[in-house]
Design a protein around this nucleic acid. Structure first.
Lengths: 237, 237
DNA sequence: ACCTGAACACCGTTCAAGT
DNA sequence: ACCTGAACACCGTTCAAGT
């Protein structure tokens, strides 16, 4: 019930340290991940998180806008743990090993696919991860359009759940000028994400991402793959 | 606020009809789907559902064990709307059109992939749907093992979210004798589901479903598919 | 048999107040 | 600047009581 002060509270301390900054955004996110690891996604409430940190639940709101913001940060925190593997000159091995690394991380936090899948806001670590995946394909010689298809095909396998970067939010269709500017800004930090975003908004490029087209592309790729495996078994037997 | 009685309550009625059975399980499920269509998955609460039906929230508990049970039924209700398409003698067209039908249904209830994905209990309509999908493959000449791989490959595309039928529940590993009996019983109503379940439990068959094996099978099928598309673009240009 | 209402143990979050 | 506590508007569900 009572909080354990880290130092004797009666001791004279320099004013800067008078109050240890017991709370920080990163600390909160880390504690949230730990709590979810222990109690699952349902056990992660603002109230229990405050309790775990020995702090009034309301104090959290000074470092986090609301629970949605916290969950965005938590999802990004898990993605940040993924360690992509680049095998130079081999896009297939790179993508394979990177996706297996992602799977291993999400497995360590078995509740995470659900919360990652429910997020709409894409934060820095997730952006960086997507940039890495896109980079593997582009550097492997994939054209921009096929690269785009590829991330849709991989869908849930890239991040435990399909995460559409540039569509989906119920927002009104953004002004093309504004999104082009956003894309150019993105390109500064995430070159491959920016490139794709620019192509999707720019009229000279791919055009806006079409859900139906992506679904059919992925579906037919799967059906072709199954057919090939099927023919393999029937001819060899 | 007040409820509209369907008949003048003072009129003398035969005792059977004295109280119109205003509540039924099917009616509750239908109302829940309607409510979710209007307010989304978050708007579907026992309290609001009771209100929508003009009934005390607690009355629902006479037809539904708890909210989990309701959501299981709701998920099954959505799946029941899917109309599979069978093109005789063409497994590929059948599977393609059936999956597109599933997608169309889930799109009509945009909140449904989330709740279907979160369910663990598989109800009749979902069983029947899985049986149809498995039947398409088996009748198309797929071996049992490849059929099993296939549904994992299709994963989220079959039902908006990957739904592992025979694994995943955190239950202790079931006694093989018991699960074999369960599988044989399943086979009575769902022949293809039963066949697969039997093979997965029986020692002469496939052995228990291995998540890692399935993940790798699907991943490599995707990578091969992408490689093929990739080679297609690089040689043709 | 079916429905009800009060009550309990939880949520996220606003707002005014403390240091 | 940061933390707090009371309060509000919600949840799902148990339990004893009504018809």
């Amino acid at each position: 019930m009572g909080r354990m002060p880290r130092r004797d509270p009666t001791a004279a301390i320099a004013p800067r340290a008078r109050q240890t900054p017991s709370l920080s955004r990163d600390g909160i996110v880390a504690a949230a991940i730990e709590l979810a690891d222990r109690d699952g996604a349902d056990g992660l409430s603002m109230r229990k998180l405050g309790q775990a940190l020995g702090v009034d639940p309301m104090s959290l709101y000074h470092h986090v806008r609301d629970k949605d913001d916290l969950l965005d940060a938590v999802a990004d925190g898990v993605v940040a743990e993924i360690e992509p593997v680049i095998v130079p000159g081999d896009w297939k091995a790179s993508l394979r090993r990177t996706i297996l690394a992602a799977r291993a991380t999400l497995r360590r936090h078995s509740w995470s696919p659900g919360v990652i899948g429910s997020r709409t806001g894409v934060r820095p670590a997730t952006m960086a991860y997507m940039d890495t995946v896109l980079g593997i394909l582009r550097e492997g010689g994939f054209e921009l359009e096929l690269t785009h298809h590829a991330v849709h095909v991989m869908g849930s396998r890239v991040l435990g759940f399909s995460q559409d970067l540039f569509v989906d939010s119920g927002d009104p269709p953004p002004d093309p000028e504004a999104s082009a500017m956003y894309a150019r800004q993105l390109a500064g930090t995430y070159p491959y994400v920016g490139e794709l975003a620019l192509a999707a908004t720019h009229d000279g490029g791919l055009g806006p991402c079409d859900d139906d087209v992506e679904f059919l592309f992925a579906l037919d790729l799967l059906l072709d793959g199954l057919e090939r495996r099927h023919d393999g078994t029937t001819t060899s037997l």
